[in-house]
Amino acid sequence: MTAAPGIGTDTGLAPALADDLAAAALALARRFAAGATLWCLAPAWAPHAQHVAVEFVHPVVVGARALPAVALVDRDLVGTARLSVRSGDVVLAVADAADREIRDITRRAPAWGATTIWIGHGERPPAGAADHVLWHDDPDPALPATGGFVLLYHLLWELTHVCFEHPGLLTVDGDCTDEVCVTCSDEGRVVEVIEQRGVSSALVRTPDGQEEVAVDLVGAVARDDLLLVHAGMALRVLGEGDS
C-alpha cells in the first residue's frame, strides 16, 4: 500500500486491513472518476456519517479535489437510500455487523448498481455482505467513540486522493465490449421488484434501469423483494440470509 502524505507506518493497522483500505480507496477513486456520489450512513452513530461526508466534500489539503458526498441520517434509511442511490454510486456504512438497516441496504446494493464499503468493529459481517469491509476486530463497545473509525475513513480519504495522482489507475481494463458476452450472459443478477405485472412477470430495478422479468418459477412477488435472475427469468426470491 502506498502511504499518503503525512501517513507513517506507525498507524497500528494490521497488514490485511491496510490491504483492504488500499483496495477500497482504488475502487472509490474509480467510481468518483466516473461521476459517482458517495452516500454515507451510520444509523447508530450519525456523527460518523456526517464526518465522512465532510472529509470528502471539504478537503483541507491544498490541491485536493472536492468530491460529492452526502450523509443520510433519515429515520427510514433503506427507503431514502433507495430513492437517492443511482447506478455507479458508492454507499459507505459505519455500523456494527448486526445493524439490520445496513445489512438490508448492502444486500440491495447490487440491484441498485452501487459499490458498498462497510466500516465497523467486533464480530464481522457475513462473507460477501459488502464489496469492501474495513474492520477493527476489537469488540470494545467504546471503540466508536475513540479515533479508530476516524482513522479508517481519514486514511480512505487520503488514499483515494493518492489514486487520483495516478490517472492510469482510474481506468478499469477488461470491460466487456462485445454485443453478446457468453460470460456475462451466464451470470445470475440480483434485482429489486418494483411491481408485479400480471401472473407471470414483474417490473424490476437493475443497475441498467428498469426491465421486466418472468416470475413463473417463483410465483407471486411483492414490492421491494429481491430476486435472483438469469436470462430474464427469476430463479428464486432472496431472503435476509442470502449474500
Results as ranks from 00 to 15, higher is better:
G35E: 14
G12S: 07
V52A: 14
T11Y: 10
C40W: 08
E240A: 14
L169I: 05
L67H: 07
G88T: 12
E101D: 10
T80N: 00
E192K: 03
L67I: 08
A22K: 09
V237Q: 03
E240I: 12
P110Q: 03
A44R: 10
A36Y: 02
T171L: 12
T171R: 14
D242Q: 01
P59K: 04
A66E: 08
A220N: 12
E179S: 11
A222P: 06
L17V: 08
R107E: 02
L203H: 12
L155M: 12
V172I: 13
L28A: 11
A23V: 06
G198F: 05
V73M: 00
H48C: 05
A44D: 13
G209I: 08
R86E: 12
E123N: 04
L13S: 02
H58W: 12
D140T: 12
E195D: 11
A234K: 00
R107N: 02
T160K: 09
V215C: 11
A14E: 15
H58R: 13
L26V: 09
L238I: 00
D96I: 10
L28C: 04
T9Q: 15
P167N: 09
L217I: 00
E158G: 08
A214G: 12
H230T: 11
R205F: 10
S185G: 10
D138K: 06
V204D: 08
R108G: 01
A111L: 14
D20V: 02
A24W: 11
A22V: 03
A53G: 11
A53V: 14
V215L: 02
G198A: 08
V191H: 09
V229W: 00
D131Q: 08
A71M: 08
A24E: 07
D131R: 02
H161F: 05
F32A: 07
C181D: 06
L67G: 10
L226G: 01
A24L: 03
H136F: 06
G147C: 09
P59C: 06
A69D: 07
D104T: 14
C184F: 05
V215N: 10
S243N: 07
D10L: 13
R86K: 13
